[in-house]
Computed example of a mutant assay.
Amino acid sequence: MSDHQPAPPTRSGGPHSGTAAVAAVADHGDGSAAVGTTRRRRLARLIVLAAAVAGLAVIGLRGRLPAPRDVLDALTGAGYGWILLAALLQAASIGAFAHQQRRLLHSLGVHLRRGRAFAIILAGTALSISLPAGPALSTAFTIRQYERAGATREVAAASAIVSGLASIGGLALLYVGGGVAIVAGSPTALLNWRPLAVVVGLAALTAAVVLAGRRYSRRPPAGGSGRSGGRARRYMRTVLTSARKGWRAGAGLRTVDWAAALAYATVKWLADLLCLIAVARGLDLPVGVAALAGIYLSVQIVRQVPLTPGGVGVVETALVAGLTAAGATGIGAAAAVLLYRLLSCWLIIPVGGLAALMLRRDPRA
């Protein structure tokens, strides 16, 4: 399950996070006073957040894992060629997301360097998976970084919105592909029509939103003063106006740009799925590829319930339960989940923190 969301767009960000981010960015300044103190505070917060995430993982998995020594023995016996492949696949997943953002911004008239795009995605993903309400905060952070790189607020918000829709579409394509594979292997699977109905519904909803947005983008902007009404009303008007402008910018993209965003999103999800499969192969789990894909896609539904930042504890428990139900031993399942989450989630937090520090440099330097 991919945790790279700028969310949108973090890897798991949704289409609604762009609007919240526009409002969040509107209230943040770039204050220059006490820079050294601010950096120390941010570093301290990063350390505290990392400790909190580790604590949540321990709490969520207590009593559900075998003895640590047994898990360590399983890890030491892993096929490290497969584990290296898993790490490369996870890097490819992040890379697909970064390239998607660069392509979207380029289509909207903004040039973003490759290294800075990777740094923004890593830092935004670290925020998304380590904080309560992480996806919204991650998107706000991402939008502000795009603004620093030369994008207008509307263009930055448009990138977040389009990325979120493409992420949903990419995941839906994986569900469709998995469904077709299952039906091809067992035609009686058509009798279980509910998962297919969910996929069709998601795809139809995404297509309807895109088509409606493209039609809406041709209408002239609504008038009206932004100074009337109370503070809350003015705030909501600012949010809606910014979101409308961002949506207009995104809906004006060419069809080929939407197709490219969808393709990159699909590669992002697929690489993350293949990372889990490579880890399972490295530990020689007796679980087939189809079963692993089914477990992965099922966990994507579970992780949408924001019980903990990044699904820590919840995702691990669901994966261990799915793998053991599919025939893996408790020790093997625990080792596979620990390795997979280490590559796809936990390592991103410190790396993303370092990337955030790098982003403090002038993007034009």
Rank of each mutant, 00 (worst) to 15 (best):
L354M: 09
H28S: 15
A293Y: 02
G95F: 10
G29N: 12
K268C: 09
L205R: 06
A20H: 13
G230D: 02
L273R: 01
S130L: 00
V209M: 13
A86C: 09
L105R: 01
G352P: 00
A251I: 03
R214D: 08
V198K: 02
A356P: 11
L347H: 11
R148C: 05
R41P: 00
I47Y: 00
V22E: 04
A172I: 00
A133F: 11
S17I: 13
G294N: 04
A336T: 04
L104T: 05
R361W: 06
S2D: 11
L171A: 06
P306L: 04
L49W: 12
S228Q: 12
S163T: 14
L84I: 09
A261E: 02
L127W: 04
A166K: 08
T10G: 14
L297A: 01
A158M: 00
G164A: 10
L65G: 10
V155C: 05
Y216H: 15
L104V: 04
R219V: 10
V35L: 13
V239S: 13
A136Y: 01
G311A: 09
R153Q: 08
R234E: 07
Y216K: 12
V299E: 04
D30K: 15
P66C: 07
H4L: 15
A249D: 03
V176F: 03
M1K: 14
A157Q: 11
L43N: 00
W193E: 00
A119T: 07
I83W: 00
R303S: 07
S12K: 15
G353N: 10
G36K: 14
S130W: 08
L276G: 06
A365S: 14
H111V: 10
Y80H: 13
V210K: 07
T241L: 04
G223E: 02
G63W: 06
A119I: 04
